[in-house]
Nucleic acid binder design. Sequence first.
RNA 1: GGCGCCUUAGCCCAGUGGCAGAGGCAGGAGACUUAAAAUCUCCAAAGCGUGGGUUCAAAUCCCACAGGCGCUACCA
Length: 1011
Amino acid sequence: MEYNFRDIEPKWRKIWADEKTFKAEENSAKPKYYVLDMFPYPSGAGLHVGHPLGYIASDIYARYKRLQGFNVLHPMGYDSFGLPAEQYAIQTGQHPAITTAENVERYRDQLDKIGFSFDWDREVRTSSPEYYKWTQWIFKQLFDCYYDNTTNKAERISKLIAEFEENGNAKVNACSDCETLFTASEWKAFNEKEQDTILQAYRLTFLADSWVNWCPALGTVLANDEIVNGVSERGGHPVEQKLMRQWSMRIKAYAERLLTGLDRLDWTESIKDIQRNWIGKSVGSSIQFKVDGQFELTTQGGNIENDIYIEVFTTRPDTIFGVSFMVLAPEHDLVDQITTPEFAAQIAEYKKSASLKSARDREADVKNITGQNTGAFAIHPFTGEKIQIWIGDYVLVSYGTGAVMSVPCGDQRDYDFAKHFGIEIKNIFENIDISEAAYTEKAGTIANSDFLNGLEVKAAMKKAIEAIEAKGIGTGKTNYRLRDAVFSRQRYWGEPFPVFYKDGLPHLVEDKFLPITLPEVDKYLPTEDGAPPLARAEKAAWNHFEGDHMEFNTMPGWAGSSWYFLRYMDPKNEHEFVNRKKADYWKQVDLYIGGSEHATGHLLYARFWTKFLYDQGYIGFDEPFQKMINQGMILGRSSFVYQMLVFGVYSGVPRDDHENMIPVELCPPILVSLNQKKIIDVYFKNVSENKFDNKNSKDFSEIKEKLDELLKELTTKANPENKYYGNYSLTTDFQSYPKHVDISIVDNDKLDIEAFKNSREEYKNAEFICEENGEYICGSEIEKMSKSKYNVQTPDELVEKFGADTLRMYEMFLGPLEQFKPWDTKGINGVHNFLRKLWRLFHDAEGNVSLSMEEPSKDALKIVHRTIKKLTDDLDRFSFNTGVSNFMICVNELTEQKCNNKAILNDLVILLSPYAPHISEELWEKLGHKKGTISYAHFPQFDESLLVEANHAYPISFNGKMRLKIELSMSLNPKEVEEAVLANVDAQKWLEGNAPKKVIVVPGKIVNIVM
RNA sequence: GGCGCCUUAGCCCAGUGGCAGAGGCAGGAGACUUAAAAUCUCCAAAGCGUGGGUUCAAAUCCCACAGGCGCUACCA
């Protein structure tokens, strides 16, 4: 019988499903192991070959751990709230729950075909009310907590209120936006709204007016990490700044712990670096600069102040004497107050132009130095000098205090600004030349700086901070770049908040009414007056309604995915989000596999929530994912056809200036094959570079000849009716333009012309300029796989053609898991052949099972034990690609030995089963293991004694160059080896009668003779 | 601009300081076959991106440069 994966694979998948083979045990005495894949969003497009890459790796590892006797938790579920389902709902009117369910089914179908060992009984979906009930519950706990910087953990709000009632907030050391100081009696005198506002400034999730990234096209706000290059990550729509009342999460409170916690994690340095940069810790100090003159400034409390101070944050307090001006962000609160009348108009103009610049323009404009003098002066706190105050958009209002003390000699941006506007540059560094650029190293000796003179940077910083604190104008301070995370989305398809409003104030819904389920709405669009879709819901549509109205926003995508790994431990619990005992058993995820693109989103937010839940004692660990591997993306290979375009839309346009003309497609389209296209490109390049006269160019005449021919063909093929055609010089006005073509109609770069013509209406009458042999050859490029690039390769067709085991092994065989690599099916036959070869080891020429029951031969034992060692090593360091190679070597060698020994094959099949589970189960059965599956067999133990050799062929190097080999007994000690080598006739030839200077003997490895 | 990763045969990749190569693809030769496919056997092919350094010994460790990729970016 031949290897027939079409029968074998469905057979075993059914057995696994029927017998719940991969169900994780409850109350097990076994050690646990938790293997998790990053939560997938079930998109309508289904899986492409890149998606299962990580799943295959984690599945291999999960199966390996089961064989090692671990109780393995290996679940799968869906992050099923999200934008695409909602966009689809808007377009079609179909409820997103329906499309989501369909997509999940399709996903599941595809996953099932690959033979994963998921415990499907634990599946969770973020969009199911049973799940989001607990997302809402966690939100409530966050609302009811604040971060205490003294105990360094989240504490209940009730504790804070008690403190307010006793002492006011003077002694409170919490992470807060609250700027007002109040006493106990003042607190008690505040009305409910005032108290509520103050508490919002402490809560870990809070309602506040904040500047948000508003995306009009999507009708929602976006988090910073959902914006890429100034446009929305999803859809690429423009984003603008807008002030909105939003729920936010006070992730800033955890900045320090999120940073230091990284050190304990077994993640790649690059991901940790990304998070470190994102958190952006800077240590320095705050310093207040008094503005020269008297003002009338009304403070928040309603008092009038005459002195205005500008607070800055700096990481270089040691350079305080190098300050020669200050710059405020254009949006800084004090700009209007301090601007002198003669500069008012210019300042107003600058502010206006700065506000009109989008984030994207500002980004593109980095090198353009702009700014405006306010006319005001600040007093240097130590020298008493008057220094100019400017505004400039290189200072960001959202970082630090929105103002900087400019030290042009030590900061390149300040330096450029000073040069541009002719402001003084003081040099406070000893023996450093700053005539060309600022000196930005944090090293050297400070000079021209009064009491800091002669000090090294580090000592100077310390002394400067002491002086600043002594003067009462500032204090040592740490700043984080990390911003609080906006938690509201103006969307329908997300978790509703457990919140209602009464008299404009938010209140939490009681636990007993949870979950607040998504109400039905007539349309999934905002209301006429711009409220989110939930505002459309009738009062009766809510399963619980309280107060004036319920919260209309929904939660963002990262809400459900921030704690899902906990729910898998206890997915059906109706009383708790997770039972503490179960969480104590399963603990952290031991191995987390997924893409690195979630570095600043999901991976940060999940850590934040985990730390919070730990602080509140709900779980016993404060990091969710102990070890993480980021699989590299599998890229697609796109195919291109080249369509001819003609420049210009009407005659009379000066044709030597292509930049101002629009290329227009010819009708019918003319498509040029790759090699012909290259000739044309060379030709036009020569035209544009005026290389026509270059008759010396070797292939020029050939190209010209071919081109003339081609252009003649172009003329005859072009539709004479084509209005864009006929008035142009063929030598200058044409250009080829690459267009993606579906890879399913391209075979080995050869285009199926008929299929192409039928693929789209506009190609029906297309004309082709082919290669000499009549074939149309496509160009190609390696790009991200995507529907729009027509380069998506689904796993389904490969499973159909080669089987899941081949697909699994081939995906691993492509290269190291972490590496980005192009998809290419060229090698898949080799992997498939390997499985067939393996199959033949078990069968005779007639296809009957034929096994030898004898004692295994020493050679065979050696082969299999070497494989055990290599495979164990490979798996322990997650080197899945080398594992596949090692199986190939093993099977090649056993084939060579014609080994059909049962004991040998038994071990081999167990080794292979994590990679190729279906064929392994089938062969396991043929080996006579009738009961149960191979999934719970024992992983074979490596026996070193089987690999010990009596002799070793020592490579003998002279000055590091290997010259000969001498076979010596392994029992010789280094001294004996040296003697034996020096006595050897061949070795003496190389010595040429000289005595060696030195002989290095590495026992069992090599001998190096230094002459 | 900053940070990180990569560069070994025509291609994908092993190589954990000690003989540059295990494997697969592609290529060549042969066997089987009427023939082809499939299968089997055999063969050829790189001196490790470049330049320094450390070492008895470097693809491997260190430094610089080049090329490719990814992330991040006026963060004071």
